[in-house]
């Protein structure tokens, strides 16, 4: 979340920003942010440095040459490992391939990132982090390698909504874990976090397929020719269960008839429990047959649109994600 920083440095920066042409400043920030590497000692690094300091005190107190040597050895290991840690992330950059990422909480939501090693040297143990969570840890990135990686954005544990992600962080503790170095990578990524799927009955009306958008609803159920079977959904009558198919699939299967299959279903998501309804709709969509025709009446709306197919399904899920949610920007 964007926090208001009132520190002196921030205020100073704001004044400087006011003096500079806006475009130039933004360009400058973008450029330096991508290049600047931040580094801090880790807890182990602090312990290690503390031991080196104790050794140093011992060395000057006793005039002990082994203690001097150990002090300088520890100091050298610490300082050189700081340089290596810094270098590990310095030459690495990340690009987003798609501008929009759709995240399904609780389910792996792969998103493609391109990681580029601009250095000739191999780099190790690079973590790509976002909002304090490690998305992926890259074992090894060979010199000048570009690699497309799939990260699981569901690890971010975000609530339903739409988010704008302005930066990712690349971090490393390589080689010894004594330092933690990171740098921010500016990205422009929109996250659509879908509701958590919920298996729950949703109010449903059948709608004649020929009369899309007419608004006349009917309740004609299964009085014509048998068409196919599908998995049982909560709330459906047990009388429609096809025992033979259920035994075969080891799960209750419902008979679907020809006329019914061609009919559109309209799900009414209105009610007091908005989030629950949206989650139920999400669960429903996940189970939905690809050729089914359906539509949703979203909370606070009266209209619906019928449709079918994968694209329509994605549209519905996107609408479920952004429903009554404004964009939250992470910087």
């Amino acid at each position: 979340m964007k926090s208001q920083d009132l520190s002196t440095s921030f205020l100073f920066l704001r004044r400087v920003r006011a003096l500079l042409p806006q475009q130039l400043f933004e360009k400058l920030v973008k450029k330096t942010n991508n290049a600047r590497v931040y580094i801090v000692p880790s807890a182990i690094g602090f312990y290690f440095s503390f031991i080196a300091f104790v050794l140093f005190l011992i060395a000057i107190s006793y005039g002990h040459n082994l203690a001097y040597f150990s002090t300088f050895l520890f100091f050298s290991f610490v300082s050189i490992s700081a340089v290596v840690t810094n270098e590990s992330v310095h030459a690495i950059s990340v690009e987003v391939v798609d501008q929009i990422a759709r995240v399904q909480p609780g389910t792996a939501s792969p998103y493609r990132l391109r990681v580029i090693n601009k250095s000739r040297k191999d780099q190790y143990d690079i973590a790509i982090e976002c909002l304090g969570k490690t998305l992926i840890l890259v074992d090894k990135l060979s010199g000048l390698e570009r690699r497309d990686l799939f990260v699981d954005l569901s690890k971010l544990d975000l609530e339903r909504g739409q988010y704008k992600l302005n930066r990712l962080s690349l971090s490393s503790r390589f080689p010894f874990g004594l330092f933690y170095a990171w740098k921010w990578m500016n990205v422009e990524l929109k996250l659509l976090v879908r509701p958590k799927p919920l298996i729950k009955q949703v109010r449903c009306f059948d709608h004649s397929g020929q009369d899309f958008g007419g608004g006349s609803l009917s309740m004609q159920i299964g009085n014509d020719e048998y068409h196919e079977t599908r998995g049982h959904r909560p709330g459906e009558s047990l009388s429609r269960i096809d025992r033979r198919h259920s035994q075969r699939f080891n799960y209750p299967q419902i008979r679907v008839f020809t006329r019914e299959s061609q009919e559109a279903k309209v799900y009414d998501l209105r009610g007091e429990q908005v989030e629950e309804s949206l989650s139920a709709a999400c669960g429903l969509l996940q189970e939905m047959s690809p050729d089914a025709t359906y539509g949703f009446i979203y909370p606070g709306e009266h209209q619906f649109t019928l449709g079918s197919g994968q694209e329509f399904k994605e549209d519905c899920l996107d609408r479920l994600s952004i429903h009554s949610k404004s964009i939250v920007e992470f910087s």
Binding site: F69, F72, L73, F75, S76, F77, I80, S81, V84
Partner: peptide, 14 residues
């Protein structure tokens, strides 16, 4: 590499 550079620096400082 880290060890060899560390040893050189250590020896110099020593």
């Amino acid at each position: 590499r880290v060890m060899s550079f560390s040893l050189i620096l250590t020896t110099l400082l020593f």
